[in-house]
Design a protein around this nucleic acid. Structure first.
Lengths: 337, 337
DNA sequence: TAAATAGGGACAAACGATTGTTTGATTTGT
DNA sequence: ACAAATCAAACAATCGTTTGTCCCTATTTA
């Protein structure tokens, strides 16, 4: 029969000293003599003593746990972000509790509630597609739980955030297509949410300006990101008398659906029509006709930077609100295949 | 200034009753009168009282948290498993702490240590490729933390496990190829670890027996799962005078590398050479020449079944060891594309 | 009518660790 | 040599909740 796990109390009893002495000895407190310190540490090691984390969490009112909310784990993109968060958290001896919103704002709220109840020390979140109010996040202020938004960041003031700007590399991408001789570059955009920055579109327009090419509004179409939505969008594009010769796709998912549909219509990819996309999935390398270029958004780094920012907030004793809102913007990169 | 979160104590003070009464009232204990019960519950609701989980965890010596160790999160396969685990855990009001071993046994041990220190109530694990001893898992017995292995299950006695048998669908897959006229069916196997069941190979052989086709040992090659390893393996196969006309690939990763290599060698996929694989990635539908069939292993269900088994163990008061080891085997399914 | 019973709460200990305050013993200074 | 300073360790409160036990007061029973 295994004895239950040893506590500070038992160490104290065995050495006939008080628990506070043991506690301080284990923490190398100056007011404990060298002799006792050694004795305690030796015995603790022998007994395989390990501090009871739940007791410490309770006493300190901290859980040493971060909450991480993501739309899903399926996409390679987010799993990389997780690794970034976990590695950073590990360095600080923190745990990470992960929740998937599945892009539903209700689940997002739910997860947040659960995390709050479990008293996570801080929250990292990449918001769901449905999220168009951050009231549920602002609530956490009342509980002194800092929130850092990353990757999918709501476009509102007074938040802490880390994201990867797509503006410049979108300009780069579109310009790249222009240089290749394309004049009709279409853009398949995602659903318009008031809360997400629209840097892709801004970059798309700016690239046209710089090259003095007029933006053809009809070349900007929208998909709800479903396969059917994307097919409708591309179908519309292909129906024009002067078809676009290049397409900027909202993400790799849209790109794949686009490519598949175009192929079905007997178009040669990267000949009749070129595709540029965001996210840079490793898997696209297995395609016969992958996008000609992709915008890499460095999810791992976003995750780790966001986590570091969160720790900075956690370690700041300043009274609420006196800490300036920090918004870290990373640069994306155009990768030409 | 926001007041700190309300406690049972404050409720007691406001109503001039004792904390124990409040506690029992909130739990609907029979020895508390209806009047007081109502009063307490009303006030608690008004004050937005929420039990302090960390205090409860401490008092009860339980964390209501499960540890989940996976090789990685990148593969869709494992993310589905996570969802299975999370959904099951959520039903029981449990949280899930996730760790990625990255297929390194040292990290696996590390994660396990961390989880033990954080006193998770139970552990679910799909072992790393390197794991060839489960000593580190057996240690958890001393701490009364039950372990359920799932998906990648060590081939040893006296464990609780949930896995998906590949035996019958491998027979089915190979037989399917035979029926299609193939006589030279190769098998690219993964690294041989003593601890993982080898049902693919057994099924491969059994299928030959049943169709009275001799197994050609040279058609069984091994890859370390890296791109290069797989290329070496397939190169070897293609070098034979009588080339195989079909290949059974260890998993989708191997299948993709195989297909890519074969294409490079100007072979027509599913004409010159057919590929059957395991795992059934959704992404393969974007390929021009996907595997002709796949074995689906139902990771979500494995995850949820494993979690349910774990809860069964957690809720069993029987003294250690008197609970019989349970091994749940699900059936895989051959999906023809 | 006195005693037994039940109902409704209060009291207090406990979980394991941390930390402010005290106490006692030894050393230092003058 | 005696007060003061220093050191080492004990004491005790505390975090929020749960739970075993005890107590008081009505109500019921013989």
């Amino acid at each position: 029969m295994e004895h239950k796990v040893p506590t500070i109390k038992e160490i104290a009893k065995k050495l006939n000293i008080s628990v506070s002495t043991v506690s301080r000895a284990l923490h190398d407190h100056p007011s404990i003599g060298l002799r006792t310190k050694m004795q305690v540490q030796k015995l603790a090691a022998e007994m395989n003593y390990e501090p009871n984390q739940t007791a410490i969490q309770f006493k300190q009112g901290k859980t040493f746990t971060l909450g991480l909310i993501l739309p899903n784990l399926r996409e390679e993109y987010f799993s990389s972000a997780i690794s970034g968060v976990e590695d950073a958290a590990f360095k600080h001896n923190y745990n990470v509790l992960i929740g998937q919103s599945h892009d539903l704002v209700d689940r997002e709220r739910n997860i947040l509630e659960t995390m709050r109840k479990h008293r996570v020390d801080g929250v990292l979140v990449s918001i769901s597609k449905q999220t168009n109010s951050i009231a549920h996040f602002e609530q956490l202020d009342k509980y002194n739980i800092p929130v850092v938004f990353f990757d999918r960041v709501p476009d509102v003031p007074n938040i802490h955030s880390v994201w990867c700007s797509l503006y410049y590399s979108t300009i780069e991408a579109v310009t790249f297509l222009f240089k290749k001789g394309h004049r009709q570059v279409a853009y398949i955009q995602g659903p318009q949410s008031l809360n997400i920055k629209n840097e892709r579109l801004e970059g798309y327009i700016e690239a046209h300006k710089r090259e003095k090419i007029a933006v053809n509004e009809s070349l900007i179409v929208t998909t709800d990101l479903s396969k059917e939505g994307t097919e409708d969008a591309i179908e519309k594009l292909l129906s024009f008398k002067t078809r676009p010769t290049a397409i900027l796709a909202f993400n790799d998912h849209v790109a794949l659906d686009t490519i598949q549909y175009a192929k079905m219509k007997k178009l040669k990819i990267n000949k009749d029509i070129s595709v540029v996309s965001y996210a840079n999935w490793p898997i696209t390398s297995y395609l016969d006709s992958p996008p000609i270029a992709s915008v890499e958004q460095f999810p791992y780094e976003q995750g780790s930077r966001a986590t570091e920012l969160l720790f900075k907030l956690l370690n700041t004793k300043l009274p609420e609100g006196s800490f300036p809102y920090e918004n870290i913007v990373l640069k994306s990169e155009l990768v030409i295949h």
